[in-house]
Design a protein around this nucleic acid. Structure first.
Lengths: 335, 335
DNA sequence: CTGAAAGCGCTAACAG
DNA sequence: CTGTTAGCGCTTTCAG
């Protein structure tokens, strides 16, 4: 391995000077050039580990997400990357797989590697960001919010979005509206469910059924959605519409409906988050649109500000969702 | 920050002993316990940067992929993660975004961070793995193969798969078969195209048209597929079938076809790689199925072997693809 | 089985 | 503007 010393010797300067050349210190142009030539000739690549140890901080930021196979999170990741692009920092992705153990491990890695910053979509509200914060690492929670963590956060108006969505189903004429939400303990699961409940409660007098038998917790994945929908269909009085709390579960729900030949809008289907490559899906799906890319972008901007020393009070940015009404909620079959 | 010295002092031992406790050295049980208690009490977390510097090797492996928004690569990533799971290594993902500059940067990071290993799906055949190899870092090329790089590789039978696919279109009765392939310079683009050409050449006598006007290079993304298909449709004599060299471009192709109300199987569509969430798509799509997960899994296994010191000659593992015949290639409309 | 000591490669004072 | 020096926190000989 060729080090800064080798370059120094070859260029006839001290190691410190070489370091300065590579870090924008004050060096005579002539010398700087000869250092660069020596470095190129020797194929010198700076040892980032040594640098991190010395500076007590690396130059990579970690993005920890719970499901790399969910396009919502990959789009969010693109937002983070694009924002980091302007800086000299690199972004690495860590997939916690909705698994608190894996998540904890990645959090430990981020701490131990002295990462410059961490953006995390927490698998559960219990996620412990304490050690990172104690060390002074800037942390931003995105999409999902750990309970009582002292961090900046960027998320969407889950509760409100869930309420608007459910209200739309009611207005479209559906009366037995089910909800397939995510794992208990994930903030987004809970909030979207709360919005659903609020809308149902407000509509009691219109003959809308509010019954917890219509509520299912699944895993935010295709299989979970499918299983939940099958259960709902097996009910003595199956729902005539479903509010599904994320995009992937909606795919499972649609599969389950197709199995029994009941398709939207006969059974209304409304997804929180656009189904991936929605253009392929017929009938087109009504969905609460989420600004996934902007979520990532905003989180990264916030993180970068903190890294530059912005010491203003902690903030939570809430991004708006938009209900996109399409064919899948056109109204129940009139029997 | 609490270091190994603090723990040593608290436990009344030397730093070396603390290190041994955390690395499985020989330490009296009683002492080991008191060290662990001290560590816990102080909230000690080992500094992985210092360790990496000392050991000249970190404990994370990098997976560099060209498109994090492509489910093929995220599935591959899952394969890598699951294989790494058995070890104490962590996997971080780097998205090169089909951009050779970003890719080079990540390769530099992997080198500078002294990563324990690197798995890379190279954006182009020119990708330079030299420095990594020179340093002795185990490297495995997956899916895409950099030209003359001295590395282990895991890929699929792209050429053969492309040939089988095209032959199927011919047998189904299509005669003007186009090909939308990926960027020139990506090994998979070239190989799949070569397979397509071989199949056409072999079928000249059956009235099959082999004309480079029917060949388009796009970007392996939805937009590229859409644009390419629009061009093909604008030809004086548009194709009656398309072999699309990846899953995402197929989505764009289907969109473009729908715009002009020409849908499969009237125009045959065959995708190299299953379209994501294919269950949603009607008509169902004929596709060359790729073992994406196994690709990642195999690459990681190979990498782990090399890290354990396996010094057998370099190997290339080629995984089989399977043609899944479905509705989208049922045959042209008879006019 | 344990401790002392010597760095891994780099950067940041501090002198000059 | 440049060189010298002193570590960053850890692991690993080498003695004992």
């Amino acid at each position: 391995m060729v080090t800064i010393h080798d370059v120094a010797r070859a260029a006839g300067v001290s190691p410190a000077t070489v370091s300065r050349v590579f870090n924008g210190g004050n060096v005579t142009p002539a010398r700087a050039r000869s250092v660069q030539e020596a470095a190129a000739a020797l194929g010198f690549a700076p040892n980032r580990v040594a640098r991190s140890l010395r500076k007590q901080r690396s130059s990579v930021i970690a993005l920890i997400i719970p499901d790399i196979e969910n396009p919502f999170f990959t789009s969010l990741a693109r937002g983070v990357e694009d924002a980091a692009q302007r800086t000299s920092l690199s972004v690495v992705l860590c997939n916690s797989d909705e698994d608190t153990d894996k998540e904890r491990r990645y959090l430990e890695v981020a701490l131990g590697e002295q990462m410059a910053g961490v953006i995390v979509a927490a698998s559960r509200e219990e996620t412990d960001l304490g050690p990172l914060i104690a060390r002074g690492t800037p942390v931003v929670a995105v999409d999902r919010r750990p309970r009582d963590a002292e961090v900046d956060a960027v998320r969407v108006d889950d509760r409100h979005g869930g309420e608007v969505a459910t209200r739309h189903l009611i207005q479209a004429g559906y009366r037995r509206i089910a909800c397939v939400t995510g794992p208990a303990g994930a903030s987004t699961s809970e909030e979207r469910l709360a919005g659903y409940r609020a809308a149902l409660d407000a509509a009691r007098e219109e003959g809308v059924v509010a019954d917890d038998a219509y509520v299912r917790h699944a895993d935010f994945r295709v299989e979970g959605g499918r299983a939940a929908m099958r259960e709902l269909l097996a009910l003595p009085e199956p729902p005539d519409a479903v509010f599904v709390a994320n995009n992937l579960m909606t795919i499972g729900v649609l599969d389950a409906l197709r199995e029994v030949d009941r398709t939207p809008p006969g059974v209304g289907v409304l997804s929180f988050g656009d189904v991936p490559w929605a253009s392929l899906v017929r009938p087109s799906l009504t969905a609460v649109e989420l600004p996934s890319y902007e979520l990532g972008r905003t989180a990264a901007d916030l993180l970068l500000q903190r890294m530059e020393g912005n010491a203003s009070p902690l903030q939570t940015v809430v991004l708006r969702t938009t209900l996109q009404i399409r064919e899948s909620t056109a109204g129940p079959v009139t029997t």
